[in-house]
Design a protein around this nucleic acid. Structure first.
Lengths: 137, 137
DNA sequence: GTAGAACTTAGAGCGCGCTCGAAGTCAAGG
DNA sequence: CCTTGACTTCGAGCGCGCTCTAAGTTCTAC
């Protein structure tokens, strides 16, 4: 049958803490997780997929408020207005991430240059008789 | 001569708020900015360069605590231990950013796929007589 | 001389996203 | 029966990075 996971197993599977999993459910990011007789949660594979997607959105900087809007649209069902709105949200996030990607690449270039500079400086300082320290940035 | 900027001009130049500029100085991220007779700060081009670099580090997720360590090393001067430590910090940050870059690209791929899916779904919903709604993720 | 704008300081406050604590329930093992 | 331990709920607390407030100074314009 489908594998159902306890909260601790979900913790391992998602990388989130049990506190965070309950918190996400409490605020409505995650639909109410089905319970066993003892009221313990058990997570279905589809819950984990949704949580993994949420984690992606969070890790790339989407606010919880926005994720809540997305989750609400998802609950609304697959009518045109929901589908269009979700698409717009993801389009918007995509654009944001493309901007971040560029910024990140620029920063990586700056860091590579700085590291190269420090490497030279380091070598000069290690053998002061062979090279005078360089001037510069 | 070198151009000196008031705090408002520094705000425009850096994109940070005046509050944040003072805050950074107060906690030691920025060295004490020189003052005019009326005690107002005036920022030198080199201050702005340093602030721009800090802003890059922040924007790519370096914590203020780490930036403070970097700033302290910089104040220490260009001896071997400072240069090596700064290089190590930037190397470390570079590695972190390379990881983020990959994650970001993965998320962008997921988003592109989802948007494509929603686009199809949207079209199907707009002309329901021509296409039945699709099943799927 | 007075109003207003732009700055100064020190310290309090805030929003986000968790994170934790307290107290209770339940099932299994000894 | 009693402990142990994993879970439950609810609400309070926290760390980060600002952000704002209040009160004071100084300069410029009228």
């Amino acid at each position: 049958m489908t594998q159902l996971l306890s909260i601790q197993e979900a913790v391992r599977a998602t990388g989130l803490s049990a506190h965070t999993l309950r918190y996400y459910e409490r605020i409505g990011l995650i639909d109410p997780i089905t319970r066993q007789a003892n009221r313990h949660r058990f997570y279905r594979p589809e819950d984990l997929q949704w949580i993994a997607f949420l984690t992606r959105l969070r890790a790339t900087g989407m606010s919880i408020e926005h994720m809540l809007r997305y989750a609400a649209l998802r609950r609304q069902g697959d009518d045109l207005s929901s589908v269009s709105a979700r698409k717009r949200m993801l389009d918007q996030h995509t654009a944001t991430l493309e901007g971040k990607l560029v910024a990140l690449q620029e920063t990586l270039a700056v860091l590579h240059a700085k590291v190269a500079f420090y490497t030279k400086r380091e070598e000069a300082l290690k053998s002061p008789t062979h090279h005078l320290p360089k001037r510069g940035a």
